[in-house]
Amino acid sequence: MLFKEEDSQLISKALDGSERAWVKLVRRYEKRVFNYCLRLTGSANDAMDLMQEVFLAVYRNLPSFQGNSQLLTWIFRIAANKSTDWLRSKHRVPTHEADPIDVNHKVDSKTPQLELQTEQSNNEIMRCLSELPDNQRIIVELKFFQHFTFDEIAMQTGISPNTVKTRLYAALKKLKGHLEVKHVM
């Protein structure tokens, strides 16, 4: 509740033209959005492009944010739309190769060995997700990584909760087979 109030205060300040409030809002949610985009696109560069598109849309639509839902839910509604458009427009399977985009950019791991393990683990997850069709991948992402409810996902993706469930279960069936192969290897 406290976060929501702070969000609303930051939103009103950002709408009044405060760049500092806007930056605070972006910093609060950019990590989640970036990781969401990274898992969907499989590329850090594409994830950055997509994340910037998402926050540009958030900034443009901020005056129309009614506060009926949490800001995070609303941001991911935009993110779902943008990622759907992006995947559709690219007509390509995610590269599932996390490109190094910044020499000075450091992941959260501490040691080179841990860093390597992290990269391998993340790459494996992105590879698994890339096996899914676009519409299923977004729903798996929103359900398992963002922990939204079926109703929230339905609102974000513009489809019915039953369709969300159907797509999710189809994705789980598909992923299960893929993971079995992976475990055998």
Binding site: E19, W22, V23, V26, R27, E30, K31, F34, N35, L38, R39, A44, A47, M48, M51, Q52, F55, A98, I101, D102, N104, H105, K106, V107, D108, S109, T118, S121, N122, I125, C128, V140, K143, F144, F145, Y169, A171, L172, K173, K174, L175, K176, G177, L179
Partner: peptide, 27 residues
């Protein structure tokens, strides 16, 4: 299959290492 798929996805969520986005011009 559904159950194991969901368990595996939960495992993926736990094993995913959050990446910090690089610096970018937020304004």
């Amino acid at each position: 299959d559904l159950y194991h798929g969901a368990v595996n996805m939960q495992q993926m969520d736990k094993t995913w290492h959050e990446q910090t986005p690089p610096n970018w011009h937020r304004t």
